[in-house]
Amino acid sequence: MKILIVDDSKAMRMIVKRTLRQAGISGHEVLEAGDGKEGLEKVKAESPELVLSDWNMPVMSGLEFLKALKSEGIDVHFGFVTSETTQEMRKLAEENGAEFLIGKPFTAETFEEILDPILN
């Protein structure tokens, strides 16, 4: 399975990858993108099964990225990994078709709990 991590911070992409490993989520090909536009291109080119996207990014935000995926009819598991954790943002994510929202800071346990049912 391919997992795409979309975050404008290289440091955070590294931490998400590390947390996936700590959560026992291994054996998957992990791809990276630095913003929503690059993420959209990667989804079209690589067809990942799961996208973990930041919310606030330059060029194209995570929400715009999600809307673009939906409007183009691309079927992929999509969730946010973001510091935007207020109820308003969670509602907005859900209304636009995100399957989950993992708040930063996160733990390996949270990753395991939320991602295991999707990946298995």
Binding site: S9, M12, S83, T85, K104
Partner: peptide, 10 residues
């Protein structure tokens, strides 16, 4: 700091 922005947002 990006993650810390949630302190302001709450």
């Amino acid at each position: 700091a990006n993650v810390g922005s949630s302190l302001f947002n709450h």
